[in-house]
Write a protein that binds this DNA or RNA. Structure first.
Lengths: 203, 203
DNA sequence: AAGCCCGTAACTCTTTCGGGTGACCGTCGT
DNA sequence: ACGACGGTCACCCGAAAGAGTTACGGGCTT
């Protein structure tokens, strides 16, 4: 009994993915989830053989979900879904243990091929080299937390407000801010936000 | 001959949207585009009655596309597609002249209902009240000075540094900053820079 | 002529930021 | 087993930002 879990916040995309995955030979069941929390809830009761998950989702993001999922079950096989821009999100997810990624630009055929391969070979994993090759220039790699803090800044939140939203102390937010400034080479939060936009880290 | 143009960067979402829209009574043709540039190219040759367009797209974003489209043809009817997170993007797009928006979380029924209404009533427009709820009603028109100050901020300059560059006193820069914050609805310089990028005022 | 927006500038006052430093605890890789 | 890195938190301190207010001259519109 081979089952695949598809997670995307858009019902339309979710449905399209579900249908595409369902046509892969050997797949008998495709379940869906709308966000990271739902994936985690569902996982404890009903483990699928493979998870396809969007990187960017409201609430619990894809990267954080991967981390929690793998800390609960290191054997989980996860493939990230992403748009062209956020290479960093992909890198983070793969670093966190996702087996690979699929562009949302990918054709149905590519999607099916990747799912087929992942299901056929339980140890399948993206070659590390492919990550570096798509690593354009010297893209600064921010951690999930740092991106969350940067996003908070881009919405005009103060450090204290960001802390409240992420359940962190203001001092911790400041630490993340300091570290992401250094990584980006930013002199202050306005600069950091600008660089975030230029690098495609936030929108 | 009623035709609708669907624009989304993800082929899967695009296809799903195309199919959903095609089931709306009265719709005879649904064309698709993958990005803003394609929409603009297509528009000059082949005008649809309605456009459904993603807010977030690589390259030319949804907001900027709306502006260009409407400056070329003020009668164009556009509905934005968005995810839960970026209320800012939606507000900007609607302020720029989009008739309304649809969550990507919307059900197929909601999607069809909105498209039906928009096609039936050429003057249909999202109630202004719903706009104010997500803030910013007026299109921000920054003066040359204000944009120069905003650009300085996006390069990590302090007010004093910006003043030195523009041969102004720091206090004058602060005045410009205060005024542009108010126009943009920004709570601080980081937010202002983010809004500047989302509006395409800086890059 | 009156009103409005823009550019310039100064003043005060409070809040926030950013840098520096140190610390503890996981995890991961070597 | 060790070190590197990431996440968390704390404290200090000076610098910067932002809000509020006032002011004055110049354009442009009504």
């Amino acid at each position: 009994m081979t089952s695949v879990l598809v997670c995307d916040d858009s019902p339309l995309a979710r449905e399209a993915l579900r249908r595409a995955v369902a046509t892969v030979p050997g797949v008998e069941r495709v379940t869906t989830a709308a966000n990271g929390e739902e994936v985690l809830r569902r996982w404890s009761a009903d483990r699928s053989d493979l998870i396809l998950m969007d990187v960017r989702m409201p609430g619990l993001g894809g990267v954080e979900t991967v981390r929690r999922l793998l800390s609960a079950d290191p054997g989980a096989r996860i493939i990230m879904l992403t748009v062209a821009e956020d290479l960093d999100g992909v890198a983070l997810a793969v670093a966190a243990g996702a087996r690979g990624y699929l562009h949302k630009d990918a054709s149905r055929a590519e999607l099916r091929a990747t799912v087929t391969q992942a299901l056929a070979d339980p140890t399948w994993r993206l070659a590390p080299r492919r990550l570096r090759s798509s690593d354009m220039g010297a893209a600064p790699t921010l951690t999930a937390r740092e991106i969350q803090v940067l996003e908070g800044m881009s919405h005009g939140r103060s450090n204290a407000e960001i802390g409240r939203e992420l359940f962190l102390s203001e001092d911790t937010v400041k630490t993340h801010a300091r570290r992401l400034f250094k990584k980006l080479g930013a002199s202050d939060r306005a600069h950091a936000v600008a660089l975030g936009f230029r690098w495609g880290l936030v929108r």
